[in-house]
Each structure stands twice: as C-alpha cells, then as structure tokens.
C-alpha cells in the first residue's frame, strides 16, 4: 500500500444533509482537485430531516478509514454530542478516530487540504483547529 492510499479520512457531521454535503464539496474543491483525501458527509437524519444520525456517522467514518485515522468535524448541538457519545463507547467508530475542535467550514477545508497532502492525523487535527485563529476583522 502506498502512502497515498493511507491518508487520513475526514467526516463532516452537520444537522443538515445539504450543509454536510456542500461543505464536503467545498473542501474537496479547494484542495486543488485531483486526488484528494477521502471525505464523507454525515448530515441530517436518514429520512432527510434535521438532526444527527449515529448510524450515518458510523457508516461515514467506516467509509473513509484507510488505516491512518479519521478526523471528525461537527457543527453544533446533537452533532457534537452524538460523536462524543460514540467515541466514549469505544466500539462504534474506527480505532484512530478523533473529534476535532474546529470551525466547521474553515476547519473542513484545512483538514481536507492537509490530509490530501499526506499529513498524519495529528497534523490534520492541528491544521483544522488552527482555523479558529484566523481573524476576519
């Protein structure tokens, strides 16, 4: 397996399917196109409503796990609590899965760009968290 096959996976968990999918597209689009790290959106409930589905989160994490770890970015409320609860149980998510404390959109872009460049999980998490430091005024 080459290094490119073992990139960190990114999961984007939002209350809304549209938000999660759009941010995933945005982040992949801004990471230079071509061969990006695996990104999966887990937004809304299975029936398309607003909320968080632990099944969708688990499936998304499994789908991007290449053995290099999975970084999970979340928006708010039940998205945060659901991922924390899943991590606390220990057996629902791939082994090296981390909840990233980061702004959702900016953090997702930073995470996908660094993961696509082949950075390890610590570096991906750090890059996403550093997005908080970017001041807009």
């Amino acid at each position: 397996m080459t290094a490119a096959d073992r990139r960190v996976g990114i999961v984007l968990v939002s209350h809304s399917r549209e938000v999660a999918e759009s941010v995933a597209r945005l982040a992949a689009g801004l990471s230079g196109g071509g061969d990006t790290a695996p990104v999966a959106a887990a937004g809304g409930t299975p029936d398309g409503g607003l909320g968080t589905s632990s099944d969708l989160v688990s499936a998304a994490a499994a789908s991007v796990d290449r053995g290099a770890g999975v970084a999970v970015l979340v928006d708010l409320g039940s998205a945060v609590l659901t991922v924390k609860a899943l991590l606390a149980e220990g057996d629902e998510l791939p082994e090296a899965t981390r909840l990233v404390d980061a702004p959702f959109v900016e953090g997702a872009v930073a995470a996908v760009v660094t993961a696509s460049a082949g950075a390890d999980l610590d570096a991906v998490v750090a890059a996403a968290s550093e997005a908080y430091a970017y001041r807009k005024e």
Binding site: T45, G49, G51, T52, S53, S54, D55, G77, S78, L81, T82, K84, A85, L86, A88, E89
Partner: peptide, 18 residues
C-alpha cells in the same frame, strides 16, 4: 436511544442509560 433519537436528547439519555 443514541442511534434513533436524532436530537441532542439521544446521546444524552443514551449515555445516561448505557
């Protein structure tokens, strides 16, 4: 509860009972 509630009460009550 964690897997079916969909809102914040799912992980919260799920964690309580688990």
């Amino acid at each position: 509860l964690i897997s079916t509630v969909g809102g914040a009460s799912g992980p919260l009550y799920g964690t309580l009972l688990r």
